[in-house]
């Protein structure tokens, strides 16, 4: 296979995902409504009850809305990753996943391209959200809006890979509710998206440990630091490691010889 073939296929897969997303306006709006409700309602309500000490990357006291914003960017990507996973289960039930898998390219490349396409959609959502937050008065340094892009790429790939991995295990669409309850909610609430680690430690040592090792926390911290023009090496390394692990497991899950599909006998 020629490199040009790979490039054309990648472009085709990303274009299809973007077309689909833009054609489904309800999906675009609902993807934005969720974090906006958290920002305008939840964060505004908790503003007065949650006091936050100065901690990196912030250099002054900040409002709760400012603290929660990177967490909500992570939330957009988390839900998008799971949405992609849901759509893959749907595609598999509907058969359109087979049209992708029967293409004459290595399966790892096809799945990674699908992942990249999902991440492109999530980044589009994140920037629309950031512009609304900016209009609301939550402003990051100008360079932060650019610096956050690679962080969003990495966190998006990690969460997308997790979604891909889950989709290789889930046979039917109905089982997806379990993913919401057992993956998305625990990952989101046991993380630094809503409260800083030291605040969690004050309440429970166990929760603190769980939140600390939660890859979603690390992704949120990577985004948080990048949005303020800083690099968090520990969060970056951890997120990259989790990405590699999830991606390898997902590719194995879709492997024609060893994968889950073979055992389940489904497409």
């Amino acid at each position: 296979m020629k490199p040009l073939h790979y490039l054309r296929a990648l472009r085709g897969i990303v274009a299809r995902e973007l077309y689909r997303f833009l054609h489904q306006r309800e999906r675009f709006i609902s993807a934005l409504v969720r974090p906006l409700v958290w920002l305008f309602v939840f964060a505004a309500g908790f503003r007065s009850t949650l006091g936050l000490a100065i901690s990196p990357p912030y250099e002054t006291y900040i409002l709760y809305e400012v603290y929660i914003t990177p967490g909500l960017l992570g939330m957009i990507q988390l839900f998008n990753g799971m949405q992609s996973s849901l759509s893959m289960v749907y595609d598999r039930e509907m058969g359109s996943m087979r049209t992708l898998l029967v293409s004459p390219l290595p399966r790892w490349f096809l799945l990674s391209s699908k992942l990249v396409a999902g991440v492109a959609v999530s980044i589009l959502q994140v920037y629309v959200f950031l512009s609304i937050a900016w209009a609301y008065g939550i402003e990051a340094p100008a360079e932060g809006y650019l610096a956050v892009l690679p962080a969003l790429l990495l966190s998006g790939v990690m969460l997308g890979a997790l979604g891909l991995l889950l989709s290789s295990f889930i046979r039917q669409l109905e089982n997806f509710a379990g993913v919401m309850n057992f993956v998305i909610f625990p990952m989101f609430f046991m993380s630094t998206a809503l409260y800083p680690l030291w605040k969690i430690q004050e309440s429970s040592e166990l929760l603190y440990r769980l939140a600390q090792w939660n890859p979603f926390s690390q992704a949120v911290e990577l985004i948080r630091f990048a949005l303020y023009g800083q690099f968090n090496g520990m969060a970056c390394g951890y997120t990259a490691g989790a990405t590699a692990l999830f991606l390898a497991a997902a590719i194995l899950g879709y492997n024609p010889s060893k994968g889950m599909m073979q055992r389940k006998g489904g497409a």
Partner: peptide
């Protein structure tokens, strides 16, 4: 939700 041509272009891209 995609047009006939968009569906076919997607397939053509997968085949390089």
């Amino acid at each position: 939700d995609l047009s006939v041509a968009q569906n076919l272009r997607y397939h053509a891209a997968l085949h390089g």
